[in-house]
Structure formats: C-alpha cells, structure tokens
C-alpha cells in the first residue's frame, strides 16, 4: 500500500515527528511504500542541518536524512512555511538574498501542490501534528 505522511510540528517540542518517524519506519519494514513525507507548519523545522541536540538524545533531523537515504524517501518541506521560518536550500537562500542555507541532506523544498498530489496519488494520507 502507498502511504504519504504530513508532519505539522517541529522536532523536540512535540512528539509528532517522533511518532511519524516510528510509523514510517514500521510501514517500510512491513513492505509498504512511502510516496512522500510532507513537512508543513513548524514541521519544516525538521529539515535544518544546523540542529545540534545533545549526544545522549536522538538526532531527529539526521534520523530522517538516514531513513530517506536508505529508502529513497521524498522528504518535502513546504516552501511558504519554510520561508517564514528561515529554512532554505541554496536556491531559496539566493532568491531571498540570504547569505546561507541550512537544509539537511535528503530534504527538498517545494510547493503545497506536493501535499495535494500526495493526497491524490497515495492510498493513505496520515497527519501527525499537535
């Protein structure tokens, strides 16, 4: 079965990203397909490579990057939400006149249409948020 996931909260403050990760990992292990993981609202904060959690805590951003690499996941940060919150790739940084980008490996920035498309193309869409 083809799943897509929407994540509406950033890492650490809410459990949403942890639950979404554990859910996605289990779905992939059980042989399901993951069409897209779409990060919206503060969820875009899951995609900054500048996060540096303490050694004894889980690294939520790196965990997503690793899962994406292993399973060729499509991790999409909403562009409008990302711009508001200061998450940028090289193109976005240049377009907005910023001197740095901070997107983590395995993530890409795109429009809200990607969420709608996930809803159309997937058998199931599940939202994790607050």
């Amino acid at each position: 079965m083809k799943f897509s996931v929407m994540i509406s909260e950033g890492p650490y403050t809410h459990q949403a990203s942890d639950t979404a990760y554990n859910f996605t990992k289990a779905a992939l292990e059980d042989g399901h397909e993951c069409f897209r993981i779409f990060f919206y609202h503060d969820g875009v904060n899951n995609g900054t490579r500048l996060a540096s959690p303490p050694q004894d805590d889980r690294n939520i951003v790196n965990r997503w990057s690793a899962l994406a690499k292993e399973h060729k996941l499509d991790l999409v940060l909403c562009v409008a939400a990302a711009q508001r919150r200061g998450i940028a790739d090289a193109d976005e940084a240049k377009r907005n006149g910023k001197n740095a980008d901070n997107i983590a490996p395995g993530f890409r920035i795109s429009g809200l249409g990607q969420l709608i498309e996930a809803g159309i193309q997937s058998d199931r869409l599940i939202t994790f948020g607050d």
């Binding site: 779905a27 199931r124 599940i126 939202t127």
Partner: peptide, 16 residues
C-alpha cells in the same frame, strides 16, 4: 507501530 500501520491500511481513511 506495526499494528498502527496495519490499522491505517485496514481502514480506508485516517483522520487525525
């Protein structure tokens, strides 16, 4: 979590 996935698959639509 595997049971969670199975429930999402079993029911047509998930509403959070």
């Amino acid at each position: 979590y595997s049971g969670f996935v199975a429930l999402v698959a079993e029911y047509d639509v998930t509403q959070s």
